[in-house]
């Protein structure tokens, strides 16, 4: 459950919520609606988001085997799905525990960082085109979290900040 919502439940245990708290609650529900709309948008647009990314990725790495690129794409399809759920729950730990902790060693072992770093850039570009600004803002912290965890080596490897 969303942590803010849980806080309201605790507050409401022995008294009515104050007017101010009810306004907060309302604001929370509004934000939640927006999160849900973002989630739906991402779910409906999964292929529309990723197909152009896949096409451009193939162009950028013409000599790379398809199954390598497919593996990288599958990783980020999963990142998007888990990030979307983490965004809906407003819970970065969900993403960390359910996916990132488990996926990071695999990416490093397969030396996919270079491909996936490019994939991340392409994905960001694509999301900027397809998502309204406020929806992108909701997703951004989770994508950053994924990038920091999964691509740490690639980022330090090129000596830049990505």
């Amino acid at each position: 459950m969303q942590p803010e919502l849980e806080a309201f439940l605790y507050e409401a245990e022995e008294r009515y919520l104050s007017q101010e708290e009810i306004q907060d609650f309302q604001a929370h529900i509004d934000r939640f609606k927006q999160r849900l709309a973002t989630y739906e948008n991402l779910r409906e647009g999964e292929i529309a988001i990723f197909q152009p990314v896949a096409d451009r990725l193939s162009e950028k790495f013409p000599t790379e085997k398809d199954d390598i690129l497919e593996q990288a794409l599958k990783h980020w399809l999963a990142v998007m799905r888990y990030s979307a759920m983490a965004m809906l729950l407003n819970n970065p730990e969900f993403l960390q525990r359910r996916l990132l902790e488990w996926l990071t060693p695999s990416i490093q072992a397969h030396q996919l960082e270079t491909v996936e770093k490019k994939l991340y850039e392409l994905l960001q570009k694509q999301l900027k085109e397809l998502l309204p600004e406020e929806q992108l803002a909701l997703m951004q912290p989770f994508l950053e979290q994924a990038k920091t965890n999964l691509l740490a080596n690639a980022l330090s490897g090129v000596g830049g900040q990505g």
């Binding site: 999964e46 292929i47 990723f50 197909q51 896949a54 096409d55 990725l57 193939s58 398809d66 690129l69 497919e70 794409l73 599958k74 399809l77 999963a78 799905r81 888990y82 359910r98 996916l99 488990w102 996926l103």
Partner: peptide, 14 residues
Amino acid sequence: ISVADLVKDSKLPG
């Protein structure tokens, strides 16, 4: 690469 094929199984395990 077809993304539709990649997500055909609908499950991406974590």
